[in-house]
Amino acid sequence: MSETPMHEAGDVREAWGRVTAWLERNDPEALAALGGPGSPEAIDEAELHIGLKLPREMRQWLLANDIDAGRQPDRPSCLVALGYEVAIPGGHLLLGLTDIQRVYLSQMALEEMQPSEDLDCPFWRREWVPFAAERDGLYGTFLDTLNGTIGMWAEAHGPEEGVYASLFAFFQETADRLEGVSSGDWRGPGKSSSPRKHDPRPEDEPIRLWARTNGYLVNDRGRIPATIREAYEVSRR
C-alpha cells in the first residue's frame, strides 16, 4: 500500500469547488459540459440498483455535479458511456451516476464469474464504488465505502488501496494540479499521464466479435469472462 497523500479530511464540496472555479476561469466550455446538480432521488435509485449505500462524501459530490445528469449514453459499445475529461490523478474519466452503476456492476460480475484466488487481495470488493475509469473499465479509481479511502485498479496488476485518504484529498490534488499548470494547458502538456495500455490478444478478437453480435457486454481489452468463453465454444460445436 502506498503512502497516503496529504489533505486527509475536509468538505468535498470545498475541494470540488476549487476544480470548478478553475474551469470557470480557464475553460468555460469544459465547465458547461460538466453537467448540472444531481438529484437525491437519482442517487437513491442508483443505490438500490447496485445494492450499496453511497458515503456522505460521494453523495455531496454527486449532488454538486452529476456528470450524467440530463445526458443519454451515445457509446453503446463502451462500458463508460459518458465520462468527463479533466486532469485528475490517474488520468481517467470522471464518472456520473449512469457510468458508476455500469462499471460497478461490470466489476462485480467479473469477480463473481472469475473469483480471485487470493481472498485477501481480490480483483474487486463489493464495498468499492468506482468514480473514474477508462472507457473499457480496465483501469480506474474507486472509493472504499468502509473507510472512505481512495484506491485504483488496473487489469494488469490488480488494485492498490489507500492511495488517497478521502475523496476530499483526491479532489484537492486535482485542484492543485490544475492550478499548477498554465491557463488552458490542462488538455496538453499539463495533463496527467495516461495509464498503461495493453493490446488485445489477437486470438480473443473472434470471441469479442461473437459476444457483441450475441448481446454480451465485453471490453475491448483485458480478460474475457469464462462464461462468455464457454458460450462461444458451445456455439462452435
Rank of each mutant, 00 (worst) to 15 (best):
G70Y: 05
H49Y: 07
P115K: 09
D99K: 06
P89A: 06
E24D: 15
D136Y: 07
G51C: 08
F131R: 06
G17N: 13
L119G: 04
V19M: 00
R126D: 09
V19R: 06
E45L: 10
Q114S: 11
L82V: 03
G38N: 10
L105I: 06
D120V: 05
G140W: 07
D74V: 12
D120L: 11
G36Q: 07
Q101I: 01
E45F: 06
H49G: 10
G35R: 09
E117Q: 08
G36T: 13
Q60L: 15
L63E: 07
Q101W: 01
G17L: 05
W22M: 04
M58S: 02
I50G: 03
W124T: 01
R56L: 11
A21E: 15
R102W: 01
D118E: 14
P37R: 13
G90K: 03
L110S: 06
M108Y: 07
Y104Q: 05
V19D: 08
R135W: 04
A42K: 09
Y139S: 10
P89E: 03
D99Y: 05
R18D: 10
Y139H: 12
Y104E: 01
L63Q: 08
R125W: 02
S39W: 01
K53P: 00
I67P: 01
H49I: 09
W61N: 11
L54M: 13
G38K: 08
L79M: 11
A87I: 12
Q114F: 04
E111D: 13
V129E: 00
G70L: 09
I43T: 11
W16L: 15
A46L: 14
H92T: 03
P37A: 15
P122L: 01
L94P: 01
D27E: 10
G90I: 06
P40E: 11
L79D: 00
Q60S: 15
I100T: 12
V19T: 12
G17R: 05
E57N: 13
T98H: 15
A64T: 10
Y84F: 15
N26C: 14
P55G: 11
Q101H: 00
Y139D: 12
Q60M: 13
H49N: 07
I67A: 06
P55D: 11
M108V: 08
G90P: 05
A64I: 05
I43S: 01
Q60D: 15
R71H: 09
A109D: 12
A132N: 04
G83K: 08
Q101N: 04
D27L: 13
T20G: 05
T98D: 01
A69Y: 02
L23K: 02
R125M: 12
W61E: 02
L105S: 04
A133F: 04
V103I: 08
P89H: 05
S116M: 11
P122C: 09
M113I: 14
L93Q: 02
S39H: 07
A21H: 08
V19W: 10
A32E: 11
P73D: 12
R102N: 09
L34Q: 07
Y139W: 05
E41K: 11
D136F: 00
L105K: 02
R102T: 00
D27H: 10
G36V: 14
L110A: 05
V129K: 00
